[in-house]
């Protein structure tokens, strides 16, 4: 069995966001594998280590810099990496185009049986692209998964719904997206980081995968930081008195009680 994991390079979650020339500035910001994608990579490697798969391949859409994220996945234990890029993909709001590109690349990478990804990217917060590609590829999906078994030509997964969980089965090939409790991603060891440098990393253009990008459904017309807060109104006094005064303020001033 071959597993493909789609990943995205994102800012670290601690990153301070600044706007520069109408775009989010990446100056001085450390970039990582999107945390949820890391769970997906770890799961794929675990399945391989337990004999459930022969090969783990990672795929990203991203500029040259995203190669670092792929190298990290290779250092974790993935066997090969693919990066698709075209400068026309740099504009935000192009989830539809990204899905077309991803589906094209995944088509070219066939045969594979399991597609893993993080359930959402922490930067654009969209949770659209890989599911949309799955529909195009005609495979089922189980999203936001915290427990996964693969075998007998199917996946059995525990997925998070609003306020409850479900145990769900789906036939392979299938897409499964990872949530945070799925596993604990390993840190690559130094020897594995060295080894990763010699593992194959292939770069594809849109032509290579036979896709014409088309125009994106959305274009970004504005970007802003949230309005700065002025700091809390501190309610002074003995704890018990302050508590009563606070209740009063919430009732009469903030009008939220």
């Amino acid at each position: 069995m071959k597993i493909v994991v789609t990943i995205k390079q994102t800012f670290t979650t601690e990153a301070k966001i600044a706007v520069d020339g109408g775009a989010i500035s990446d100056k001085g910001i450390k970039q990582i594998v999107n945390p949820y994608d890391e769970f997906a990579v770890e799961q794929a490697i675990k399945i391989k280590e337990s004999g459930g798969a022969e090969e783990v391949v990672v795929l990203t859409i991203g500029p040259e810099r995203a190669g670092e994220a792929l190298r990290q996945c290779l250092a974790m234990g993935a066997d090969a990496a693919f990066r698709v890029w075209d400068d026309s993909l740099a504009a935000p709001g192009a989830w539809d185009v990204y899905a077309t590109v991803l589906a094209g690349a995944l088509e070219k990478m066939k045969p594979w049986e399991l597609l893993l990804a993080g359930w959402v990217a922490v930067d654009d917060n969209a949770a659209i692209v890989v599911q949309r590609a799955a529909e195009t590829l005609g495979i089922p999906q189980v999203l936001v998964v915290n427990k996964l078994d693969v075998g007998d030509g199917k996946v059995t997964a525990v997925r998070e719904m609003d306020g409850y969980r479900e145990v769900v089965e789906a036939p392979l090939p299938a897409l499964v997206t990872a949530d945070k409790a799925l596993n604990t991603p390993r840190y690559p060891t130094l020897p594995n980081i060295m080894k990763a440098k010699r593992k194959p990393l292939t770069v594809w253009t849109l032509e290579d995968i036979g896709v014409t990008a088309g125009s994106a459904g959305f274009t970004r017309t504005g970007l802003a930081l949230p309005p700065a807060k002025t700091g809390a109104k501190i309610v002074e006094g003995e704890p018990e008195e302050a508590a009563v005064a606070l209740a009063d303020l919430l009732h009469t001033e903030a009008k939220v009680i």
Binding site: A232, K233, V235, P239, L246, I257
Partner: peptide, 26 residues
Amino acid sequence: FEIADYGIVADLFKVVPAFNEAIAKI
């Protein structure tokens, strides 16, 4: 406190019960 609208700097075990009582009254 940087993003809060209201704050109390104190032990929550002293604040929360009194706060609850005051809210119940309101």
